[in-house]
């Protein structure tokens, strides 16, 4: 069963964004080429068994309209077995590691956006029982997303609204969306030190952790994250806690929609 809900829009079955398979997932280059041998050794483990798996779905537009906000969905719900974590890396980025998702009691599905410095593939590697299942999507981008200052720095006071958290929980679909006002500075723009989120976790009404994310520089400015919760967790309030590399912390609670 798919968790994709495009068809909730009228006539929304166009299916314009489809996963790429084979070498198309990496823009026509061999899947195990370019930066990937280096990245898999570093982030998955030098001798870790891995394979390209079409059930690790990565969805993205073919062209990035805005290199500062390139949207993705990673969907491992079709993989058999319990997904322990999903490592997301960007092939040609000054910061290869975008995030690691520990789905815990949430579904292994995540919507997010990243900055793109140059065209290339984003890869999602799901770990199940010591094996890695890897999917990818190649995005054409002009780039500069990681080295340009955050848009907020064009304003007189970037701290205005800083840390504001918005969110919503839809009981019917189990969707949880959270966004945080944060510049997500990578440290590469002149005179602007690195300032970005490092972690975000969801907690149930009893205070037990549902899922968590390790977050790094590539995550977009003012990031939006979309989770899918199972029905029992989507019926109760969920608290979101997050932190950045300068010690700021952010918290908010969403209550299920009626």
């Amino acid at each position: 069963m798919t968790v994709i809900i495009s068809d909730m829009l009228p006539g929304g079955t166009a299916g314009l964004i489809q996963p790429a398979t084979g070498d198309a997932a990496t823009g026509g280059d061999a899947f195990d080429s370019g930066m990937w041998p280096t990245h898999r050794a570093e982030y998955l483990g030098a001798d870790a068994p891995w394979r390209q798996d079409p059930a690790m779905v990565v969805l993205a537009p073919r062209a990035a309209e805005n290199s500062a906000h390139v949207p993705f969905v990673i969907d491992a719900t079709a993989l058999p077995g319990v997904v322990e974590r999903i490592v997301v890396t960007v092939d040609y980025s000054p910061f290869a590691h975008a995030l690691t998702f520990h789905p815990g009691r949430a579904l292994p599905f995540l919507g997010f956006g990243v900055k793109y410095e140059v065209a290339g593939a984003l890869r999602a590697s799901a770990r199940i029982g010591g094996e890695w299942h890897v999917g990818a999507a190649w995005v054409s981008a002009l780039g500069g997303g990681c080295s340009a200052p955050a848009a907020v720095h064009a304003r007189p006071d970037w701290q205005q609204g800083f840390g504001q958290m918005r969110g919503r929980l839809w009981q019917k679909t189990g969707r949880l969306v959270v966004s945080i006002r944060h510049p997500q500075d990578t440290g590469l723009a002149d005179g602007i030190p690195a300032h970005h989120l490092t972690e975000l976790a969801l907690y149930d009404a009893q205070g037990a952790r549902i899922a968590n994310l390790e977050l790094f520089e590539p995550l977009e400015e003012n990031p939006t994250l979309t989770f899918v919760l199972p029905p029992d967790l989507a019926r109760q309030p969920v608290t979101i806690r997050s932190r950045d590399n300068l010690g700021d912390s952010f918290t908010g609670t969403v209550r299920p929609d009626a």
Binding site: P10, A14, L16, W170, R175
Partner: peptide, 30 residues
């Protein structure tokens, strides 16, 4: 308002009555 991701909103395509317009679906996806 329904909790779609940007990817799902793109994938749904433009409002059906405008799917035939020149430059769609590219312009809608942008």
């Amino acid at each position: 308002q329904t909790g779609l991701t940007r990817i799902e909103a793109m994938s749904a395509g433009p409002a059906p009555e405008f799917a035939h317009l020149g430059a769609n679906p590219e312009e809608y996806i942008r």
